[in-house]
């Protein structure tokens, strides 16, 4: 390959500046993070103190997943070199994702509320039925 091609670090291509960095180095860091994300939860399973084990698992598995994703988006997808509305677009979609979680989580994750209770949960929960023989929903707690 020509010297020009080898030295093509920053150049205009298709209407924007593309800044090529040391991709192999980024890849090596990603592999190290992959190893940590696999080994972390294994180490955590040997920790008897449950809150500590949970913290280690969450930080190594999911915290590192966020870091890895950020590295790929920044170094491989070059999102910072696109027009400014592109990161805003992506962040907006992520906000929608969290809105979905916030809106649906109470229905999915809770079995009863102030004025409602899941019929299926009543059928499975003998303790609740014992305290609510008429099958009334909510408001009693």
């Amino acid at each position: 390959m020509s010297d020009h091609a080898e030295n093509a670090g920053n150049e205009t291509h298709g209407g924007h500046e593309t800044h090529h960095g040391d991709y192999v180095r980024v890849w090596k860091v990603l592999l190290v993070l992959l190893v940590v994300s696999v080994v972390g939860p294994i180490v955590a399973s040997a920790i008897e103190h449950r809150p500590t084990a949970l913290a280690v698992t969450l930080s190594t598995a999911f915290g590192i997943a966020v870091v890895k994703a950020y590295m790929v988006v920044k170094n491989f997808m070059h999102i910072q070199f696109t027009q400014r509305f592109v990161p805003y677009l992506v962040v907006t979609m992520l906000v929608f994702m969290f809105l979905l979680f916030a809106g649906a989580a109470p229905d999915v994750m809770k079995s009863e509320g102030r004025n409602w209770v899941k019929p299926g949960w009543i059928a499975e929960n003998a303790d609740y039925r014992a305290h609510h023989p008429d099958g009334s929903a909510g408001g009693a707690h």
Partner: peptide, 28 residues
């Protein structure tokens, strides 16, 4: 920006909603 690049980012934006919906439901 070139139309092709714009289109790819739009595809990705819509894909975030698709996969995001599945993943958030799974987490719940």
């Amino acid at each position: 920006m070139p139309t092709g690049r714009l289109a790819v980012w739009w595809v990705i934006a819509s894909e975030i909603v698709i996969f995001g919906g599945i993943l958030t439901s799974y987490v719940m």
